[in-house]
Simulated assay, not measured.
Amino acid sequence: MNWGLPMLKTVTSWLAATTAAFVLIPLMQPVAAQSYVESEEVALIFCSYVRDNHTVRLQRKLRDLRIRLRDVYAHIRCNDATLIQFAVKNNANDIGSFIARSVSADVIEKAGDYRWLREQNLLQTPIGEALAPRFQN
């Protein structure tokens, strides 16, 4: 069976397009996540969810944006406070505990959250109690 030159070009074009899609799509996702992090609107939404103690809404928004909290945590500030500090200040214990469990201990340590809770004598709060076991030696 002779497929001919037009069929060979079609198959070659299809293979090239498929290969390009598999290579470029994964490369584009981190760029999209980074642009969401830099968006003041998204940061404002996250801060309002923390202030209002809406854990489910935060989880849904993260899923909709296809980003992980641990990837964006260090870039978001609410009134010059980290999300955990902002949760403590607003008595948003459910979402603060969720964040304390979701973000890596290294990121939390770099942000200074555990040190801040200790200095403010807030380790006995629900958020402090969720965070403390991650920093026990």
Rank of each mutant, 00 (worst) to 15 (best):
N2Y: 09
N2G: 10
N2A: 11
W3H: 14
G4N: 09
G4C: 04
G4P: 06
M7P: 02
L8V: 08
L8G: 08
T10I: 10
T10H: 06
S13I: 03
W14T: 01
W14S: 09
L15V: 05
A16L: 14
A17H: 10
A17R: 08
A17Q: 12
T18G: 14
T18C: 12
T19M: 14
V23Y: 07
L24S: 11
I25G: 08
P26D: 00
P26A: 09
L27A: 14
L27K: 11
Q29I: 13
Q29N: 13
Q29C: 10
P30D: 04
V31M: 13
A32R: 15
A33M: 14
Y36K: 08
Y36P: 01
E38V: 12
E38R: 15
S39E: 03
S39W: 03
E40N: 15
E40Q: 15
A43P: 00
L44G: 15
S48Q: 15
V50N: 00
V50Y: 04
R51C: 08
R51P: 00
D52V: 06
N53L: 00
H54G: 10
T55A: 05
V56I: 13
L58D: 00
R60E: 09
R60A: 09
K61G: 03
R63C: 07
R63W: 11
D64Y: 12
L65M: 06
L69D: 05
L69V: 08
R70K: 10
D71W: 11
D71A: 11
V72H: 04
V72D: 02
Y73V: 03
Y73S: 01
Y73E: 06
A74R: 11
A74E: 09
H75N: 13
R77C: 04
R77V: 02
R77W: 08
C78L: 06
A81Q: 14
A81V: 03
T82I: 03
Q85V: 03
Q85N: 05
V88E: 04
V88W: 00
K89Q: 09
K89P: 01
N90H: 05
N90T: 02
N90A: 03
N91A: 07
A92N: 01
A92V: 05
N93M: 09
N93V: 08
D94M: 11
F98S: 00
I99E: 01
A100T: 01
A100R: 00
S102D: 02
A105T: 13
A105H: 06
D106V: 08
D106F: 08
I108N: 02
I108E: 05
I108Y: 05
I108R: 05
E109D: 13
G112I: 14
G112S: 09
D113K: 11
Y114Q: 08
Y114R: 13
R115D: 07
R115Q: 10
Q120F: 09
Q120T: 12
N121F: 12
N121W: 08
L122D: 13
T125M: 04
I127W: 00
I127P: 02
I127A: 01
I127V: 10
I127N: 01
G128Q: 01
E129D: 11
L131E: 01
L131A: 07
A132M: 06
P133M: 05
P133I: 07
Q136H: 07
N137Y: 10
N137F: 13
